[in-house]
Simulated assay, not measured.
Amino acid sequence: MIKCDEPRTLGVPAPEARLRFEAEEVEKAEREGRSRRRLLVVDGEPAFELSHWCGTCPLLFRRLVTATQKLSLEDVRERLTGTLADPGDGGVIDAFGALLPEGEYLPVLLRVEPRLVIPGQEGDYFRGEQVDSWGIDQFWGLPEYPHTPYYRTFETAVGSSAHLYEFVVPMVPPTWNERERVEEYVELMGRGAVPTAVAVSTLDVCQAENAFGDDQSPHWGLTHFLLDGHHKLEAAAIAGRPVQLLSLLALGEGLADAEQCARLPALRAQPRSARKTGA
């Protein structure tokens, strides 16, 4: 972690926000014979299904078929090509705050070294650590599937039993990125540049209950949904280089209480450590 600011009120009235968090309509869920979903909505279309409200179901960020939009802002691109010294540098927070629903957000400036993960392959949280705690889905007989590549960036212990996992989730798959722009960032990073990406983030604290895994320890999932930086994150993963990530943590939108959110800066400043199996 580079710096954590104080919580601040950002955003516009929810109907005007390009990105917002919503509960699915009861009637729609009933028509389809399932429980209501917790959703991240972009430009009026459901983009991601999020962890269920109960807090005992597995952590989830599942991309939906209507997730087709990025939220980059051209007028701040030049500032984000360089290194920010402060979360509020250059009015970046206010610029991206105008995309979000009105609420309390905690700005945190992080330095991350992203590793691209393909679901079902090595390093996939959903087939690894999550199965260790929840087991596989008893109906499908499979692990949860996020329907998107994503980046893993950090993890650390939370006390003696729980564990924090950090993810950066692109709004669209890296295969949609422009190759020339990715290569430009690879070259810039090779010369020592550390560009900045921007994300809106949630903290979900989930604990398996009556599950089928061997490890029932709580999982703290810090999930960053990229607003700007799709090409930068892919380039950093290719080059093995760091990027900065300006995270706007949406307080009250995740499955974490105020005390848990307040612990996040200190946890994110800890040394990186993998979970001990059977802890």
Rank of each mutant, 00 (worst) to 15 (best):
residue 3 K to H: 09
residue 4 C to K: 04
residue 15 P to E: 11
residue 17 A to P: 02
residue 19 L to M: 13
residue 21 F to C: 03
residue 26 V to C: 05
residue 29 A to H: 13
residue 34 R to E: 12
residue 35 S to E: 15
residue 39 L to G: 06
residue 39 L to R: 05
residue 40 L to M: 14
residue 44 G to L: 02
residue 45 E to G: 02
residue 47 A to G: 09
residue 48 F to Y: 15
residue 49 E to S: 10
residue 53 W to A: 11
residue 54 C to V: 07
residue 56 T to F: 09
residue 60 L to N: 05
residue 60 L to V: 05
residue 60 L to W: 00
residue 61 F to I: 00
residue 63 R to H: 08
residue 64 L to C: 04
residue 64 L to R: 03
residue 65 V to P: 06
residue 67 A to E: 01
residue 71 L to E: 05
residue 71 L to Y: 07
residue 71 L to C: 04
residue 72 S to I: 01
residue 75 D to E: 15
residue 76 V to P: 02
residue 77 R to H: 09
residue 80 L to C: 06
residue 80 L to I: 11
residue 86 D to Y: 03
residue 87 P to L: 04
residue 90 G to L: 01
residue 92 V to Q: 10
residue 94 D to C: 04
residue 95 A to N: 08
residue 96 F to R: 00
residue 97 G to M: 04
residue 100 L to Y: 07
residue 105 Y to S: 05
residue 106 L to Q: 10
residue 109 L to T: 10
residue 109 L to Q: 09
residue 111 R to M: 05
residue 111 R to P: 00
residue 113 E to H: 13
residue 114 P to Q: 06
residue 115 R to E: 08
residue 115 R to L: 08
residue 115 R to I: 06
residue 119 P to Q: 08
residue 120 G to I: 06
residue 123 G to I: 01
residue 124 D to H: 11
residue 126 F to L: 14
residue 127 R to A: 13
residue 132 D to F: 08
residue 133 S to I: 09
residue 135 G to K: 11
residue 138 Q to H: 03
residue 139 F to K: 09
residue 140 W to F: 09
residue 145 Y to K: 04
residue 145 Y to P: 00
residue 147 H to C: 11
residue 151 Y to H: 12
residue 157 A to H: 05
residue 161 S to P: 01
residue 163 H to C: 04
residue 163 H to M: 10
residue 164 L to I: 09
residue 168 V to T: 14
residue 168 V to C: 01
residue 169 V to D: 02
residue 169 V to T: 15
residue 178 E to V: 10
residue 184 E to G: 07
residue 191 R to K: 14
residue 192 G to S: 07
residue 192 G to W: 02
residue 192 G to Y: 07
residue 192 G to V: 06
residue 197 A to F: 04
residue 197 A to E: 02
residue 198 V to D: 04
residue 199 A to S: 15
residue 204 D to N: 12
residue 208 A to V: 10
residue 210 N to S: 09
residue 213 G to I: 05
residue 214 D to F: 15
residue 215 D to N: 00
residue 216 Q to M: 12
residue 217 S to K: 09
residue 220 W to G: 06
residue 222 L to H: 15
residue 226 L to G: 01
residue 229 G to L: 04
residue 230 H to R: 01
residue 233 L to W: 03
residue 234 E to P: 01
residue 235 A to S: 02
residue 241 R to V: 01
residue 243 V to P: 03
residue 244 Q to W: 03
residue 248 L to Y: 07
residue 248 L to I: 13
residue 249 L to K: 03
residue 251 L to P: 01
residue 252 G to H: 10
residue 252 G to Y: 07
residue 253 E to C: 09
residue 258 A to M: 00
residue 258 A to S: 13
residue 262 A to H: 04
residue 262 A to R: 13
residue 265 P to K: 07
residue 265 P to W: 06
residue 266 A to Q: 14
residue 266 A to L: 11
residue 274 A to Q: 13
residue 276 K to R: 14
residue 276 K to G: 14
residue 276 K to A: 15
residue 278 G to M: 13
